[in-house]
Design a protein around this nucleic acid. Structure first.
Lengths: 247, 247
DNA sequence: CGTTGGGTTGATCGACCTCAATAAAAGTGG
DNA sequence: CCACTTTTATTGAGGTCGATCAACCCAACG
Protein backbone atom coordinates (compact mmCIF):
# COMPACT_ATOMS: atom_id res chain seq x y z
CA UNK A 1 0.00 0.00 0.00
CA UNK A 2 2.08 2.90 -1.31
CA UNK A 3 2.41 5.81 1.03
CA UNK A 4 1.17 3.98 4.08
CA UNK A 5 3.23 4.70 7.11
CA UNK A 6 2.35 3.07 10.38
CA UNK A 7 3.55 4.69 13.55
CA UNK A 8 6.20 2.51 15.14
CA UNK A 9 6.08 4.26 18.49
CA UNK A 10 2.58 2.87 18.98
CA UNK A 11 1.15 4.32 22.17
CA UNK A 12 -1.71 2.40 23.78
CA UNK A 13 -4.28 4.33 21.76
CA UNK A 14 -6.02 1.29 20.31
CA UNK A 15 -9.32 1.05 22.08
CA UNK A 16 -10.80 -1.85 20.13
CA UNK A 17 -9.85 -5.45 19.37
CA UNK A 18 -6.16 -5.86 19.98
CA UNK A 19 -4.23 -9.05 19.35
CA UNK A 20 -1.77 -8.41 22.15
CA UNK A 21 -4.11 -7.20 24.83
CA UNK A 22 -7.19 -9.39 24.52
CA UNK A 23 -10.58 -7.98 25.51
CA UNK A 24 -9.47 -4.44 25.08
CA UNK A 25 -12.71 -4.12 23.16
CA UNK A 26 -14.65 -3.93 26.36
CA UNK A 27 -13.18 -0.52 27.07
CA UNK A 28 -13.58 0.67 23.49
CA UNK A 29 -15.31 4.04 23.51
CA UNK A 30 -16.91 3.50 20.12
CA UNK A 31 -17.94 -0.12 20.57
CA UNK A 32 -21.66 0.44 20.83
CA UNK A 33 -21.59 2.75 17.80
CA UNK A 34 -19.52 0.57 15.52
CA UNK A 35 -20.05 -2.88 14.07
CA UNK A 36 -18.79 -4.39 17.32
CA UNK A 37 -21.99 -3.34 19.04
CA UNK A 38 -23.81 -6.19 17.34
CA UNK A 39 -21.68 -8.87 18.99
CA UNK A 40 -21.90 -10.88 22.20
CA UNK A 41 -18.82 -11.53 24.35
CA UNK A 42 -17.72 -14.73 22.58
CA UNK A 43 -18.03 -13.15 19.15
CA UNK A 44 -16.24 -10.05 20.31
CA UNK A 45 -13.37 -12.18 21.54
CA UNK A 46 -13.20 -13.94 18.17
CA UNK A 47 -13.17 -10.62 16.32
CA UNK A 48 -10.60 -9.39 18.81
CA UNK A 49 -8.22 -12.15 17.76
CA UNK A 50 -8.51 -11.08 14.12
CA UNK A 51 -7.90 -7.37 14.75
CA UNK A 52 -4.67 -5.48 14.32
CA UNK A 53 -4.61 -2.15 16.13
CA UNK A 54 -3.00 0.56 14.02
CA UNK A 55 -2.23 4.21 14.48
CA UNK A 56 -1.58 6.82 11.81
CA UNK A 57 -0.17 10.32 11.77
CA UNK A 58 -2.17 13.16 10.27
CA UNK A 59 -1.81 13.01 6.47
CA UNK A 60 -0.90 9.31 6.44
CA UNK A 61 -2.60 7.24 3.79
CA UNK A 62 -4.88 4.43 4.99
CA UNK A 63 -5.42 3.09 1.48
CA UNK A 64 -5.59 4.28 -2.08
CA UNK A 65 -8.19 4.21 -4.83
CA UNK A 66 -7.93 1.26 -7.24
CA UNK A 67 -5.47 -0.67 -5.09
CA UNK A 68 -6.42 -4.21 -3.98
CA UNK A 69 -8.57 -3.93 -0.87
CA UNK A 70 -6.82 -6.43 1.38
CA UNK A 71 -8.05 -4.87 4.60
CA UNK A 72 -11.09 -3.32 6.17
CA UNK A 73 -10.88 -0.80 9.01
CA UNK A 74 -12.85 0.26 12.02
CA UNK A 75 -11.95 3.78 13.13
CA UNK A 76 -11.56 4.07 16.89
CA UNK A 77 -10.29 7.64 17.17
CA UNK A 78 -9.41 10.53 14.87
CA UNK A 79 -10.86 11.37 11.49
CA UNK A 80 -10.12 10.77 7.82
CA UNK A 81 -11.13 12.07 4.41
CA UNK A 82 -12.38 9.71 1.71
CA UNK A 83 -11.98 10.95 -1.84
CA UNK A 84 -11.91 10.21 -5.52
CA UNK A 85 -9.51 11.83 -7.95
CA UNK A 86 -10.13 12.52 -11.63
CA UNK A 87 -7.21 12.03 -14.03
CA UNK A 88 -6.77 15.81 -14.35
CA UNK A 89 -6.50 16.30 -10.60
CA UNK A 90 -10.02 17.40 -9.75
CA UNK A 91 -11.03 15.87 -6.46
CA UNK A 92 -14.34 14.92 -4.91
CA UNK A 93 -14.44 14.06 -1.25
CA UNK A 94 -17.15 11.42 -0.83
CA UNK A 95 -17.16 11.52 2.94
CA UNK A 96 -15.36 12.12 6.20
CA UNK A 97 -14.80 9.17 8.52
CA UNK A 98 -15.23 9.70 12.26
CA UNK A 99 -14.70 7.35 15.22
CA UNK A 100 -16.98 4.32 14.98
CA UNK A 101 -17.06 4.41 11.18
CA UNK A 102 -16.28 1.30 9.23
CA UNK A 103 -14.23 1.51 6.03
CA UNK A 104 -14.73 -1.32 3.59
CA UNK A 105 -18.47 -1.86 3.83
CA UNK A 106 -18.52 -2.86 0.20
CA UNK A 107 -15.97 -5.62 0.61
CA UNK A 108 -14.99 -5.27 -3.01
CA UNK A 109 -11.78 -6.40 -4.65
CA UNK A 110 -10.42 -2.90 -5.03
CA UNK A 111 -10.88 0.34 -3.15
CA UNK A 112 -13.22 2.70 -4.91
CA UNK A 113 -11.71 5.71 -3.15
CA UNK A 114 -8.63 6.81 -1.23
CA UNK A 115 -8.55 7.52 2.47
CA UNK A 116 -6.10 9.53 4.51
CA UNK A 117 -5.95 10.71 8.07
CA UNK A 118 -6.88 14.30 8.89
CA UNK A 119 -5.64 13.96 12.47
CA UNK A 120 -3.71 11.32 14.39
CA UNK A 121 -5.93 8.30 13.95
CA UNK A 122 -6.31 4.85 15.41
CA UNK A 123 -8.17 1.96 13.86
CA UNK A 124 -8.69 -1.76 14.05
CA UNK A 125 -7.51 -3.42 10.88
CA UNK A 126 -8.92 -6.73 9.67
CA UNK A 127 -7.95 -8.92 6.78
CA UNK A 128 -10.81 -8.61 4.32
CA UNK A 129 -10.69 -12.35 3.70
CA UNK A 130 -10.87 -13.27 7.38
CA UNK A 131 -13.51 -10.67 8.09
CA UNK A 132 -15.63 -11.91 5.22
CA UNK A 133 -15.49 -15.46 6.55
CA UNK A 134 -16.36 -14.30 10.04
CA UNK A 135 -19.31 -12.49 8.47
CA UNK A 136 -20.56 -15.71 6.91
CA UNK A 137 -20.69 -17.35 10.32
CA UNK A 138 -22.28 -14.37 12.07
CA UNK A 139 -25.47 -13.34 10.24
CA UNK A 140 -26.43 -10.64 12.71
CA UNK A 141 -23.08 -8.94 12.11
CA UNK A 142 -23.88 -9.02 8.41
CA UNK A 143 -27.23 -7.47 9.19
CA UNK A 144 -25.50 -4.75 11.16
CA UNK A 145 -23.09 -4.14 8.32
CA UNK A 146 -25.97 -3.97 5.88
CA UNK A 147 -27.76 -1.45 8.06
CA UNK A 148 -24.63 0.67 8.18
CA UNK A 149 -24.24 0.44 4.41
CA UNK A 150 -27.88 1.41 3.94
CA UNK A 151 -27.38 4.39 6.19
CA UNK A 152 -24.31 5.39 4.19
CA UNK A 153 -26.33 5.10 1.00
CA UNK A 154 -28.97 7.34 2.46
CA UNK A 155 -26.34 9.92 3.44
CA UNK A 156 -24.88 9.72 -0.06
CA UNK A 157 -28.31 10.46 -1.53
CA UNK A 158 -28.69 13.44 0.78
CA UNK A 159 -25.31 14.61 -0.44
CA UNK A 160 -26.53 14.28 -4.03
CA UNK A 161 -29.30 16.76 -3.23
CA UNK A 162 -26.77 19.12 -1.68
CA UNK A 163 -24.38 18.86 -4.62
CA UNK A 164 -27.02 19.07 -7.33
CA UNK A 165 -29.63 21.46 -6.06
CA UNK A 166 -28.34 23.77 -3.37
CA UNK A 167 -26.63 27.16 -3.41
CA UNK A 168 -23.17 27.76 -1.96
CA UNK A 169 -24.56 29.19 1.27
CA UNK A 170 -27.00 26.30 1.70
CA UNK A 171 -24.23 23.81 1.02
CA UNK A 172 -22.05 25.19 3.77
CA UNK A 173 -24.98 25.35 6.20
CA UNK A 174 -26.01 21.78 5.39
CA UNK A 175 -22.43 20.65 5.85
CA UNK A 176 -22.24 22.16 9.33
CA UNK A 177 -25.61 20.71 10.34
CA UNK A 178 -24.61 17.29 9.04
CA UNK A 179 -21.33 17.30 10.93
CA UNK A 180 -23.05 18.53 14.08
CA UNK A 181 -25.37 15.55 13.97
CA UNK A 182 -22.48 13.13 13.55
CA UNK A 183 -20.33 14.66 16.29
CA UNK A 184 -23.38 14.77 18.52
CA UNK A 185 -23.65 11.01 18.38
CA UNK A 186 -20.07 10.73 19.67
CA UNK A 187 -19.75 13.42 22.29
CA UNK A 188 -22.23 15.29 24.39
CA UNK A 189 -23.43 18.79 23.53
CA UNK A 190 -22.49 20.14 20.14
CA UNK A 191 -22.64 23.87 19.75
CA UNK A 192 -18.95 23.87 18.90
CA UNK A 193 -18.21 21.78 15.85
CA UNK A 194 -14.63 20.58 15.33
CA UNK A 195 -13.46 20.98 11.74
CA UNK A 196 -10.38 18.79 11.35
CA UNK A 197 -10.45 19.32 7.58
CA UNK A 198 -9.21 22.33 5.58
CA UNK A 199 -11.42 24.76 3.65
CA UNK A 200 -10.15 23.06 0.51
CA UNK A 201 -11.46 19.73 1.81
CA UNK A 202 -14.85 21.28 2.58
CA UNK A 203 -14.91 22.73 -0.92
CA UNK A 204 -14.06 19.40 -2.48
CA UNK A 205 -16.85 17.82 -0.47
CA UNK A 206 -19.44 20.42 -1.45
CA UNK A 207 -18.44 21.03 -5.06
CA UNK A 208 -17.14 24.54 -4.34
CA UNK A 209 -13.80 26.33 -4.42
CA UNK A 210 -11.81 27.19 -1.30
CA UNK A 211 -12.57 30.85 -1.81
CA UNK A 212 -16.31 30.32 -1.93
CA UNK A 213 -16.25 28.23 1.24
CA UNK A 214 -14.23 30.91 2.99
CA UNK A 215 -16.59 33.64 1.78
CA UNK A 216 -19.67 31.76 2.93
CA UNK A 217 -18.20 31.05 6.37
CA UNK A 218 -17.18 34.70 6.66
CA UNK A 219 -20.66 35.79 5.66
CA UNK A 220 -22.29 33.49 8.24
CA UNK A 221 -19.89 34.80 10.86
CA UNK A 222 -20.58 38.43 9.89
CA UNK A 223 -24.30 37.78 10.32
CA UNK A 224 -23.64 36.23 13.76
CA UNK A 225 -24.97 32.82 12.70
CA UNK A 226 -21.66 31.17 13.51
CA UNK A 227 -18.43 32.07 15.25
CA UNK A 228 -15.22 30.90 13.63
CA UNK A 229 -12.86 29.44 16.25
CA UNK A 230 -9.53 27.62 15.85
CA UNK A 231 -10.15 24.22 14.20
CA UNK A 232 -13.90 24.59 14.22
CA UNK A 233 -16.98 26.76 14.37
CA UNK A 234 -19.44 27.55 17.11
CA UNK A 235 -23.08 27.66 16.09
CA UNK A 236 -24.67 30.79 17.47
CA UNK A 237 -28.05 30.68 15.74
CA UNK A 238 -28.95 27.07 15.16
CA UNK A 239 -32.48 27.87 13.97
CA UNK A 240 -31.15 30.18 11.23
CA UNK A 241 -28.57 27.68 10.08
CA UNK A 242 -31.05 24.81 10.08
CA UNK A 243 -33.42 26.94 8.04
CA UNK A 244 -30.66 27.43 5.48
CA UNK A 245 -29.88 23.71 5.43
CA UNK A 246 -33.57 22.75 5.53
CA UNK A 247 -34.18 19.53 3.72
CA UNK B 1 -50.12 5.20 -0.52
CA UNK B 2 -51.51 8.37 -2.00
CA UNK B 3 -51.48 8.57 -5.75
CA UNK B 4 -50.81 4.89 -6.25
CA UNK B 5 -52.93 3.42 -8.97
CA UNK B 6 -52.61 -0.23 -9.80
CA UNK B 7 -53.69 -1.33 -13.23
CA UNK B 8 -56.82 -3.40 -12.93
CA UNK B 9 -56.60 -4.80 -16.43
CA UNK B 10 -53.50 -6.63 -15.34
CA UNK B 11 -51.95 -8.27 -18.39
CA UNK B 12 -49.64 -11.22 -17.72
CA UNK B 13 -46.61 -8.93 -17.51
CA UNK B 14 -45.48 -10.17 -14.13
CA UNK B 15 -42.46 -12.30 -14.75
CA UNK B 16 -41.40 -12.98 -11.18
CA UNK B 17 -42.93 -14.53 -8.06
CA UNK B 18 -46.68 -14.61 -8.47
CA UNK B 19 -49.05 -15.83 -5.79
CA UNK B 20 -51.57 -17.08 -8.29
CA UNK B 21 -49.29 -18.75 -10.76
CA UNK B 22 -46.62 -20.45 -8.65
CA UNK B 23 -43.13 -20.91 -10.05
CA UNK B 24 -43.53 -18.13 -12.54
CA UNK B 25 -40.15 -17.05 -11.22
CA UNK B 26 -38.45 -19.69 -13.28
CA UNK B 27 -39.33 -17.81 -16.45
CA UNK B 28 -38.45 -14.42 -14.99
CA UNK B 29 -36.16 -12.60 -17.37
CA UNK B 30 -34.44 -10.68 -14.63
CA UNK B 31 -34.10 -13.49 -12.11
CA UNK B 32 -30.37 -13.97 -12.39
CA UNK B 33 -29.81 -10.22 -12.16
CA UNK B 34 -32.04 -9.52 -9.22
CA UNK B 35 -32.02 -10.68 -5.62
CA UNK B 36 -33.79 -13.88 -6.70
CA UNK B 37 -30.59 -15.07 -8.34
CA UNK B 38 -29.19 -15.91 -4.92
CA UNK B 39 -31.90 -18.47 -4.16
CA UNK B 40 -32.31 -22.21 -4.73
CA UNK B 41 -35.62 -23.69 -5.88
CA UNK B 42 -37.13 -24.18 -2.43
CA UNK B 43 -36.26 -20.67 -1.35
CA UNK B 44 -37.55 -19.26 -4.61
CA UNK B 45 -40.85 -21.04 -4.03
CA UNK B 46 -41.04 -19.56 -0.53
CA UNK B 47 -40.34 -16.08 -1.83
CA UNK B 48 -42.85 -16.72 -4.59
CA UNK B 49 -45.59 -17.24 -2.03
CA UNK B 50 -44.81 -13.87 -0.45
CA UNK B 51 -44.81 -11.91 -3.69
CA UNK B 52 -47.59 -9.80 -5.12
CA UNK B 53 -47.19 -9.07 -8.81
CA UNK B 54 -48.12 -5.47 -9.62
CA UNK B 55 -48.25 -3.40 -12.74
CA UNK B 56 -48.22 0.37 -13.04
CA UNK B 57 -48.96 2.87 -15.79
CA UNK B 58 -46.39 5.43 -16.79
CA UNK B 59 -46.47 8.29 -14.23
CA UNK B 60 -48.00 6.14 -11.51
CA UNK B 61 -46.50 6.52 -8.07
CA UNK B 62 -44.88 3.46 -6.52
CA UNK B 63 -44.31 5.16 -3.17
CA UNK B 64 -43.65 8.57 -1.73
CA UNK B 65 -40.89 10.15 0.33
CA UNK B 66 -41.47 10.14 4.12
CA UNK B 67 -44.40 7.73 3.95
CA UNK B 68 -44.19 4.51 5.99
CA UNK B 69 -42.28 1.94 3.94
CA UNK B 70 -44.62 -1.03 4.20
CA UNK B 71 -43.40 -2.69 1.02
CA UNK B 72 -40.26 -3.43 -0.89
CA UNK B 73 -40.24 -3.93 -4.67
CA UNK B 74 -38.36 -5.89 -7.25
CA UNK B 75 -38.70 -4.35 -10.72
CA UNK B 76 -39.32 -6.95 -13.41
CA UNK B 77 -39.95 -4.67 -16.40
CA UNK B 78 -40.12 -0.98 -17.15
CA UNK B 79 -38.28 1.87 -15.47
CA UNK B 80 -38.83 4.39 -12.69
CA UNK B 81 -37.35 7.60 -11.36
CA UNK B 82 -36.32 7.93 -7.72
CA UNK B 83 -36.22 11.47 -6.39
CA UNK B 84 -36.12 13.79 -3.43
CA UNK B 85 -37.99 17.09 -3.29
CA UNK B 86 -36.96 20.18 -1.36
CA UNK B 87 -39.71 22.20 0.34
CA UNK B 88 -39.45 24.90 -2.34
CA UNK B 89 -39.94 22.44 -5.18
CA UNK B 90 -36.36 21.87 -6.28
CA UNK B 91 -35.92 18.24 -7.18
CA UNK B 92 -32.95 15.88 -7.18
CA UNK B 93 -33.30 12.56 -8.92
CA UNK B 94 -31.14 10.11 -6.97
CA UNK B 95 -31.42 7.30 -9.49
CA UNK B 96 -33.32 5.54 -12.23
CA UNK B 97 -34.59 2.02 -11.54
CA UNK B 98 -34.38 -0.54 -14.33
CA UNK B 99 -35.54 -4.18 -14.53
CA UNK B 100 -33.80 -6.30 -11.90
CA UNK B 101 -33.41 -3.38 -9.50
CA UNK B 102 -34.58 -3.73 -5.93
CA UNK B 103 -36.32 -0.83 -4.19
CA UNK B 104 -36.13 -0.85 -0.43
CA UNK B 105 -32.57 -2.03 0.13
CA UNK B 106 -32.41 0.07 3.25
CA UNK B 107 -35.44 -1.56 4.87
CA UNK B 108 -36.04 1.58 6.89
CA UNK B 109 -39.27 2.67 8.54
CA UNK B 110 -39.94 5.41 6.01
CA UNK B 111 -39.07 5.96 2.38
CA UNK B 112 -36.21 8.37 1.95
CA UNK B 113 -37.31 9.21 -1.60
CA UNK B 114 -40.28 9.00 -3.93
CA UNK B 115 -40.54 6.66 -6.90
CA UNK B 116 -42.73 6.81 -9.95
CA UNK B 117 -42.95 4.89 -13.16
CA UNK B 118 -41.45 6.36 -16.33
CA UNK B 119 -43.02 3.67 -18.50
CA UNK B 120 -45.52 0.89 -17.94
CA UNK B 121 -43.86 -1.06 -15.18
CA UNK B 122 -44.22 -4.40 -13.49
CA UNK B 123 -42.79 -5.38 -10.15
CA UNK B 124 -42.96 -7.97 -7.41
CA UNK B 125 -44.16 -6.41 -4.20
CA UNK B 126 -43.27 -7.84 -0.79
CA UNK B 127 -44.39 -6.87 2.68
CA UNK B 128 -41.33 -5.33 4.27
CA UNK B 129 -42.07 -7.19 7.49
CA UNK B 130 -42.35 -10.57 5.82
CA UNK B 131 -39.36 -9.94 3.59
CA UNK B 132 -37.26 -8.94 6.58
CA UNK B 133 -38.14 -12.15 8.38
CA UNK B 134 -37.35 -14.21 5.31
CA UNK B 135 -34.02 -12.41 5.20
CA UNK B 136 -33.24 -13.49 8.76
CA UNK B 137 -33.68 -17.12 7.78
CA UNK B 138 -31.73 -16.83 4.53
CA UNK B 139 -28.28 -15.36 5.21
CA UNK B 140 -27.04 -15.70 1.63
CA UNK B 141 -29.98 -13.58 0.46
CA UNK B 142 -28.91 -10.96 3.00
CA UNK B 143 -25.42 -11.18 1.61
CA UNK B 144 -26.80 -10.64 -1.87
CA UNK B 145 -28.82 -7.68 -0.68
CA UNK B 146 -25.77 -6.24 1.01
CA UNK B 147 -23.73 -6.61 -2.16
CA UNK B 148 -26.44 -4.80 -4.10
CA UNK B 149 -26.56 -2.02 -1.49
CA UNK B 150 -22.78 -1.72 -1.62
CA UNK B 151 -22.92 -1.44 -5.37
CA UNK B 152 -25.59 1.24 -5.08
CA UNK B 153 -23.40 3.11 -2.63
CA UNK B 154 -20.53 2.95 -5.05
CA UNK B 155 -22.73 4.31 -7.85
CA UNK B 156 -23.92 7.09 -5.55
CA UNK B 157 -20.31 8.05 -4.87
CA UNK B 158 -19.59 8.12 -8.60
CA UNK B 159 -22.60 10.38 -8.96
CA UNK B 160 -21.18 12.67 -6.29
CA UNK B 161 -18.08 13.14 -8.45
CA UNK B 162 -20.28 13.89 -11.44
CA UNK B 163 -22.43 16.38 -9.54
CA UNK B 164 -19.59 18.09 -7.73
CA UNK B 165 -16.70 18.19 -10.12
CA UNK B 166 -17.78 17.84 -13.73
CA UNK B 167 -18.85 20.30 -16.40
CA UNK B 168 -22.25 20.19 -18.06
CA UNK B 169 -20.90 18.41 -21.14
CA UNK B 170 -19.05 15.84 -19.03
CA UNK B 171 -22.15 15.27 -16.93
CA UNK B 172 -24.25 14.42 -19.96
CA UNK B 173 -21.54 12.19 -21.40
CA UNK B 174 -21.10 10.36 -18.09
CA UNK B 175 -24.86 9.94 -17.83
CA UNK B 176 -25.03 8.28 -21.25
CA UNK B 177 -22.08 6.01 -20.52
CA UNK B 178 -23.55 5.01 -17.19
CA UNK B 179 -26.92 4.17 -18.70
CA UNK B 180 -25.27 2.27 -21.53
CA UNK B 181 -23.52 0.05 -19.01
CA UNK B 182 -26.74 -0.64 -17.15
CA UNK B 183 -28.79 -1.37 -20.26
CA UNK B 184 -25.96 -3.51 -21.55
CA UNK B 185 -26.35 -5.84 -18.59
CA UNK B 186 -29.99 -6.35 -19.52
CA UNK B 187 -30.02 -6.61 -23.28
CA UNK B 188 -27.37 -7.44 -25.83
CA UNK B 189 -25.59 -4.78 -27.84
CA UNK B 190 -25.98 -1.21 -26.74
CA UNK B 191 -25.14 1.42 -29.27
CA UNK B 192 -28.71 2.69 -29.04
CA UNK B 193 -29.56 3.81 -25.54
CA UNK B 194 -33.23 4.07 -24.60
CA UNK B 195 -34.03 7.25 -22.66
CA UNK B 196 -37.43 6.71 -21.03
CA UNK B 197 -36.98 9.90 -18.98
CA UNK B 198 -37.49 13.51 -20.07
CA UNK B 199 -34.75 16.12 -20.46
CA UNK B 200 -36.05 17.65 -17.24
CA UNK B 201 -35.46 14.33 -15.47
CA UNK B 202 -31.93 14.13 -16.83
CA UNK B 203 -31.33 17.69 -15.66
CA UNK B 204 -32.63 16.91 -12.18
CA UNK B 205 -30.34 13.90 -12.07
CA UNK B 206 -27.25 15.84 -13.17
CA UNK B 207 -27.83 19.12 -11.39
CA UNK B 208 -28.55 21.00 -14.63
CA UNK B 209 -31.51 22.77 -16.21
CA UNK B 210 -33.55 21.31 -19.08
CA UNK B 211 -32.10 23.90 -21.44
CA UNK B 212 -28.53 22.98 -20.64
CA UNK B 213 -29.21 19.28 -21.09
CA UNK B 214 -30.83 20.00 -24.44
CA UNK B 215 -27.94 22.21 -25.54
CA UNK B 216 -25.33 19.61 -24.58
CA UNK B 217 -27.17 16.83 -26.39
CA UNK B 218 -27.53 19.08 -29.43
CA UNK B 219 -23.84 19.91 -29.32
CA UNK B 220 -22.85 16.24 -29.09
CA UNK B 221 -25.19 15.49 -32.00
CA UNK B 222 -23.79 18.39 -34.09
CA UNK B 223 -20.28 17.00 -33.54
CA UNK B 224 -21.47 13.55 -34.65
CA UNK B 225 -20.69 11.97 -31.28
CA UNK B 226 -24.29 10.89 -30.83
CA UNK B 227 -27.44 10.69 -32.92
CA UNK B 228 -30.68 11.75 -31.26
CA UNK B 229 -33.45 9.25 -32.06
CA UNK B 230 -37.01 8.99 -30.73
CA UNK B 231 -36.89 8.00 -27.03
CA UNK B 232 -33.15 7.58 -26.98
CA UNK B 233 -29.74 8.29 -28.44
CA UNK B 234 -27.40 6.29 -30.62
CA UNK B 235 -23.73 6.49 -29.71
CA UNK B 236 -21.72 7.15 -32.86
CA UNK B 237 -18.30 7.79 -31.37
CA UNK B 238 -18.02 5.79 -28.19
CA UNK B 239 -14.32 6.58 -27.72
CA UNK B 240 -15.01 10.34 -27.78
CA UNK B 241 -17.90 10.09 -25.37
CA UNK B 242 -15.98 7.85 -23.00
CA UNK B 243 -13.12 10.32 -23.06
CA UNK B 244 -15.55 13.05 -22.01
CA UNK B 245 -16.97 10.87 -19.27
CA UNK B 246 -13.55 9.53 -18.26
CA UNK B 247 -13.42 8.71 -14.62
C1' DC C 1 -58.30 21.05 -35.05
C1' DG C 2 -57.11 23.35 -30.35
C1' DT C 3 -54.58 22.04 -26.41
C1' DT C 4 -50.85 20.29 -23.81
C1' DG C 5 -46.43 18.55 -22.63
C1' DG C 6 -42.00 17.97 -24.24
C1' DG C 7 -37.95 19.85 -26.78
C1' DT C 8 -34.95 23.31 -28.94
C1' DT C 9 -32.84 27.77 -29.55
C1' DG C 10 -31.51 32.65 -28.52
C1' DA C 11 -30.46 36.72 -25.47
C1' DT C 12 -29.24 38.17 -21.14
C1' DC C 13 -27.89 37.71 -16.29
C1' DG C 14 -25.66 36.35 -12.16
C1' DA C 15 -23.60 32.92 -8.88
C1' DC C 16 -19.61 31.06 -8.49
C1' DC C 17 -14.90 30.50 -10.44
C1' DT C 18 -10.33 32.28 -11.55
C1' DC C 19 -6.55 34.94 -10.74
C1' DA C 20 -3.96 37.72 -7.61
C1' DA C 21 -2.45 39.73 -3.36
C1' DT C 22 -2.06 39.57 1.48
C1' DA C 23 -2.50 37.73 6.04
C1' DA C 24 -2.24 34.38 9.45
C1' DA C 25 -0.75 30.02 11.18
C1' DA C 26 2.18 26.10 11.47
C1' DG C 27 6.23 23.90 10.83
C1' DT C 28 11.63 23.64 10.50
C1' DG C 29 16.19 24.23 11.33
C1' DG C 30 19.77 26.92 13.43
C1' DC D 1 13.62 31.07 20.91
C1' DC D 2 13.68 33.23 16.66
C1' DA D 3 14.23 33.78 11.25
C1' DC D 4 12.48 31.41 7.39
C1' DT D 5 9.63 28.59 4.63
C1' DT D 6 5.32 26.37 3.69
C1' DT D 7 0.61 25.78 4.18
C1' DT D 8 -3.86 27.57 4.96
C1' DA D 9 -7.19 31.30 5.08
C1' DT D 10 -9.08 35.60 3.64
C1' DT D 11 -10.33 39.29 0.54
C1' DG D 12 -10.85 41.74 -3.90
C1' DA D 13 -11.47 42.32 -9.05
C1' DG D 14 -12.91 40.49 -13.07
C1' DG D 15 -14.47 36.64 -16.10
C1' DT D 16 -17.37 32.64 -17.43
C1' DC D 17 -20.35 28.71 -17.41
C1' DG D 18 -24.67 27.52 -16.77
C1' DA D 19 -29.20 29.66 -15.19
C1' DT D 20 -33.02 32.44 -16.36
C1' DC D 21 -36.37 34.34 -19.31
C1' DA D 22 -38.71 34.03 -23.53
C1' DA D 23 -40.07 32.49 -27.99
C1' DC D 24 -41.14 28.87 -30.94
C1' DC D 25 -41.58 24.04 -32.80
C1' DC D 26 -43.59 19.62 -32.88
C1' DA D 27 -46.04 15.42 -31.83
C1' DA D 28 -49.72 13.29 -29.25
C1' DC D 29 -54.35 13.29 -28.27
C1' DG D 30 -59.07 14.31 -27.07
Amino acid sequence: MAGLRVLQSAPPLALCPNAHVPNDCEQCRVRSLSICGALDNDELAALDRMARPLTFHARDTLFEQDEPADSVFNITSGSARLYKLLPDGRRQIVGFALPGDFLGLAMEERNSFSADALTPLSACQFSRQAFSEFLDSTPHLLRRLHNMASHELSLAQDQMVILGRRTAEEKVAAFLIGLRKRWGRLSTSSVTIPLPMTRQDIGDFLGLTVETVSRMLTRLAREKVILIVPDGVRLLDIARIEALAES
